[in-house]
């Protein structure tokens, strides 16, 4: 690339330095502090954790680190089950998003070119309106005396209202609903680029549409599937608002557990340990996403 044209070194340094320093100070350092506090001891006071490095009369006397916070997490069934429940709910929701989103993305990609932008716009539009208020709308639909039960009882399908709000089912609906656009967009991006002549070739060779889909379209859209799944899975694992509003007492998810531990129990070291444990579970998916992103930025493989 052209390095020489950005001749003024100081200018280059400023352009690089300003966002870099911001990210280090307001993103990397906070994460390191979380890691630090996750191995600090809890205490009663402000702030509610002991300093990691001990000083006496200005001299450094030792490190006071502990793994108790992590041990406590693993020994507490509540958090272990929250851990697995979060991964399960996020995983199943991702799959549901894929099942609903894939045909949508394919239908948009196969629509006439001039129809694609408005169809895509319709997928994105809900994302621009308040997430919180859209989740809240589901409360009105799903509650015992809500719209869904009203319609089903009026149709005579059920005689007693179904309990959906404050159950896992409601959480699934909420997550799939909120994250569906994140699945459709990357899927559409890969499906749109698909060369239609490949499908024509498959048809000429006698493959039926279903067969052509399985052996041509689907394998070629794997990058979109991976990207979309990560964009749904990762935030869903840490989701806090949806389980809080739609979930019930037995829906334990990490995001909610973390908030309760932090705000109600004021146990900051354990909350930090939970955050570290959550990041550990997400490290692999996040790394995959990073790789996908850098491939997207450098298609020629410069990196």
């Amino acid at each position: 690339m052209r390095v020489g044209s950005w001749r003024q070194v100081w200018g280059r340094r400023a352009v690089l330095g300003i966002p870099y320093v911001w990210l280090l100070l307001f993103f990397l350092v906070p994460l390191l502090i979380v890691a630090k506090i996750s191995i600090s001891e809890i205490r009663v006071g402000v702030p509610p954790y002991e300093p990691l490095l001990e000083f006496a009369d200005g001299a450094f006397i030792g490190v006071r680190a502990t793994v108790t916070n992590f041990v406590l997490l693993f020994e507490d069934d509540l958090y272990v089950s929250a851990y697995f429940q979060s991964l399960t709910i996020a995983g199943v929701s991702t799959l549901l998003c894929l099942l609903i989103g894939y045909p949508m993305a394919l239908a948009i990609a196969r629509a006439r070119p001039e129809r694609r932008p408005p169809l895509l716009l319709l997928v994105i539009l809900p994302f621009w309106t308040s997430f919180l208020i859209r989740v809240y709308a589901w409360m009105g639909i799903l509650k015992d005396e809500g719209l869904l039960n009203g319609v089903l009882m009026w149709l005579g399908v059920i005689s007693e209202p179904l309990v959906i709000l404050n159950t896992d089912t409601a959480v699934y609906i909420g997550i799939v609903y909120s994250y569906l656009p994140f699945m459709v967009l990357p899927l559409y991006a890969t499906l749109e680029k698909l060369d239609p002549s490949l499908l024509e070739a498959a048809a000429d060779l006698g493959a039926r549409p279903i067969r052509a889909f399985w052996s041509v379209t689907l394998p070629l859209s794997v990058p979109g599937i991976v990207a979309g799944s990560l964009l749904v899975f990762v935030p869903a694992v840490g989701e806090y608002v949806i389980p809080d509003l739609l979930g019930g007492g037995d829906t334990q998810m990490l995001g909610k557990a973390l908030w309760d531990m932090f705000a109600l129990n004021r146990d900051w070291p354990s909350a930090a340990a939970l955050a570290v444990a959550m990041l550990a579970a997400l490290a692999l998916p996040i790394a995959l996403f990073q790789k996908w992103q850098s491939k997207l930025d450098n298609p020629e493989g410069q990196e």
């Binding site: 966002p19 870099y20 990210l23 280090l24 993103f27 990397l28 906070p30 994460l31 502090i33 979380v34 990560l230 964009l231 990762v234 935030p235 694992v237 840490g238 989701e239 806090y240 990490l254 995001g255 973390l258 908030w259 932090f262 909350a271 930090a272 955050a275 959550m278 990041l279 997400l282 998916p285 996040i286 996403f289 990073q290 992103q293 850098s294 930025d297 990196e303």
Partner: peptide, 18 residues
């Protein structure tokens, strides 16, 4: 590169706590 993309996939709850 990593720092700029990470907030996109970091759960909000961790970001808030951090």
């Amino acid at each position: 590169n990593g720092l700029i993309a990470a907030p996109l996939v970091m759960p909000e709850i961790i970001l808030g706590l951090a």
